[in-house]
Design a protein around this nucleic acid. Structure first.
Lengths: 171, 171
DNA sequence: GGTTAGATATATCGGACCGATATATCGAGG
DNA sequence: CCTCGATATATCGGTCCGATATATCTAACC
């Protein structure tokens, strides 16, 4: 997840860790946050995988900032991760992907949106069924939360469907 | 978090790990899930802290099931954790707390609900401000997600306020 | 010129948690 | 008796979070 976000930001321009953290917060902070303890180890991992590389060599000890740039392999990994049909059930992960939707082809966008819609519809049906059949056995506060969840998920689906409609209108 | 959930379920009746997992999924599964890798280590931790204890001693090797029961200390820890004003910013954590609201005094319930409402209002104001001032610099898909987030958060606040009203009406 | 405060910058540690997997036993049905 | 699915416990590798440590750069002030 954090690797997708890092690659997506490094596509804009090479950056060092601190700058990445600021951009992460500015661009994705509404629905997802990264910590130092995930950012720097992720950059190390990705350098080892050669998904990113330092603009100036590691041996240049005097240099304070470690500026990273995305590699060709990194670009491939980004496209693969972004197109993958996972992270459809996690609102935060889906939000991060959405922030990079402009890097996907329109049909790939529609594909992801429709999978998200399918997941939400399934979840909605399950919650409704549970509300219907277990009514007596559910705690009153949990019941209220589940009713609210039905409303929110319904609104979610309507929003996704607006995005799908717009996407298809533009193609 | 998982410790609050375990203690809350063990208040109902003593259970073993597998049974706890099933009840966790049945009662809290709508908004929060636990894994084996968190459940069993949590039970071990909690036994060490004497928040829970085995109904039959550890030395009884023949016994297949490890049935745990909540201790007096565990009851205290449950009440403390439930009343704490944290986990106000995480929907899943708040959902778990809500599922145990019946164990709180009405004024403690209102207190938590009002803190959640305050957090949501703050978040709403921030998102609106960002939408207003950064309009041009935000990616179109992110912008749409943020607009949707405004709607969802507004609905969240209205729901919380209904709960507060009901709570006050009953007291 | 010197000092201080706050922003910039990197890094790591302990612990919690997830997803996957290993292992074994129980009970029902053929 | 055998097999299969449910029951039951446990651990492993890896990721992530929250906190913390450390150092430098820069601008402001006296």
């Amino acid at each position: 997840m954090i690797e997708l976000a890092i690659l997506g930001l490094l596509k804009q321009k090479p950056m060092h860790g601190y700058e990445l953290k600021k951009e992460l917060t500015a661009q994705l902070g509404q629905f997802w946050q990264a910590s130092w303890g995930s950012l720097y180890p992720a950059l190390s991992r990705m350098e080892k995988q050669t998904a990113v590389e330092r603009v100036f060599p590691k041996t240049d000890v005097k240099r304070r900032k470690n500026i990273y740039r995305i590699t060709n392999l990194g670009e491939e990994m980004f496209q693969t991760a972004l197109s993958e049909h996972s992270s459809i059930s996690d609102a935060a992960r889906f939000g991060v992907k959405l922030a990079f939707f402009r890097y996907l082809k329109p049909d790939a966008r529609v594909e992801l949106l429709e999978r998200r819609r399918a997941y939400l519809k399934e979840k909605l049906a399950e919650t409704r069924e549970k509300l219907r059949s277990y009514k007596e056995r559910i705690d009153a506060y949990t019941y209220s939360l589940m009713e609210h969840d039905v409303d929110v998920t319904t609104a979610d689906i309507a929003w996704i469907e607006r995005l799908i409609t717009e996407e298809k209108a533009h193609s």
